[in-house]
Design a protein around this nucleic acid. Structure first.
Lengths: 227, 227
DNA sequence: CGCTCATTTGACAGAAATCAAAAGCGGTGG
DNA sequence: CCACCGCTTTTGATTTCTGTCAAATGAGCG
């Protein structure tokens, strides 16, 4: 672990900067320290699809492949703990335990991605949005409250702009906006400022997802990450 | 490899039989020898979502996890090369090279799943159907190659019923049927029997996907599999 | 203040789900 | 061989939803 620390270094990227471009040599890997990273893919028509959002502690980059099939782009200002990909790979060879952890992480990630894919393709737009908000509420709750009492205000902070969220959920900013306003009218959430809401009715939100709470929790980022 | 052969054994399942149930102890892993396996997930409402389809040479089961988050079900009569999960795991510990291969496989699978997810969430129904048919045409092209006769005719064999395909593509049997008939009317495909079509116009099919041929090929199962 | 960009709202057309019914297919048993 | 039954697939009519286009509102900033 100390050795991993020696090999890695902290780098900062401004919002909008491309960290690794699709098709490029993926020379670095690492994990997110602060901020949010967009995992994107350019379609033929030139519009970018959001494949995933990476939050602090999430791993980014593609080990054991010479070119990345996706782009990694700073969705906000971010700081990343970076390691040269080659160095990381040879490090893995010397520390099989870490490599084993990586395997477990990737297996979990595959499961989570499959759950997400099943969810997005089988649900209505409102359901997808509700699931997304639910996940965000849990993400942010993790940093604040250990007791789930309703006295705590649960804040849902949108990490990126509406356009990106809409692309991530496979819809448009307009439809996203309409559905959010519907939830506001139903007093499920309450706007705090442009990019954050208070969750007023957690059960109501779950109702809109048409998923069980168990399945929702399974979709949270669950894996213990490297470092 | 010989040792792996000793540990594994061939098992047959009839169409509809459940190989590993969601939530169950996943006691076996292995790969598909013949037939097609459905990877599914039950939603709260009781309807099953199709998360993936596994073809011959595809790996099934979940190593390093005590219970499976998905069900594995025989979509057709299948024969599987099965290994006890524990035995497989201890085998991996003794043969790091194989474990490395598994890691590469899972990484590729994660990429392919992400591409699939991006595709399904950002495309119209016709585009999803066209992509699915394209992938099937490539899949079956591979397995029929041994047939000696280099056939001009490319056969697309639907491995499961329309209901399952519709669920996989995030649509309904009705819409699926309408779009297939549209392709038939446009002479892109021609029905051979209830579950197979001849591909008449490969370029026309690609046109309907609104994807580049490169991206399509990236979505094929590409990884070299264990055993 | 005036500019730009992001978000919201409105009107509308198109696509897909739903509801309903007909046609095709495979079995079973007379 | 044929009639019957259950099931899947196809087709049709209708409604709902969502994307698109357009315009208004609001937020950040020099």
């Amino acid at each position: 672990m100390q050795e991993l620390g020696r090999l890695s270094h902290l780098r900062e990227f401004r919002k909008g900067q491309v960290i690794v471009a699709q098709g490029d040599d993926a020379t670095i890997v690492g994990n997110v320290v602060t901020g949010v990273v967009k995992l994107t893919k350019m379609s033929v028509s030139g519009q970018q699809q959001i494949v995933g959002l990476l939050f602090p502690s999430d791993f980014f980059g593609r080990a054991f492949s010479d070119n990345s099939r996706f782009s990694y782009e700073a969705a906000t200002d971010v700081s990343l703990c970076c390691i040269d990909r080659q160095a990381f790979e040879s490090f893995l060879l010397r520390f099989p335990e870490v490599k084993h952890e990586l395997l477990l992480t990737v297996l979990d990630e595959l499961d989570a991605t499959r759950e997400w894919a099943a969810m997005t393709s089988a649900h209505t737009t409102m359901e997808r949005i509700a699931v997304f908000l639910f996940i965000l509420s849990k993400r942010s709750a993790g940093s604040y409250c250990e007791n789930g009492t309703k006295s705590e205000r649960t804040v849902i902070a949108l990490p990126v702009g509406r356009r990106d969220i809409a692309a991530y959920l496979g819809t448009t900013p307009e439809t996203l906006s309409r559905n959010i306003q519907t939830l506001v009218r139903k007093h499920v959430i309450r706007p705090l400022d442009a990019n954050s809401f208070e969750l007023l009715d957690s059960a109501g939100l779950v109702d809109h997802t048409s998923e069980s709470r168990d399945d929702l929790e399974a979709m949270l980022g669950v894996a213990p990450r490297i470092r």
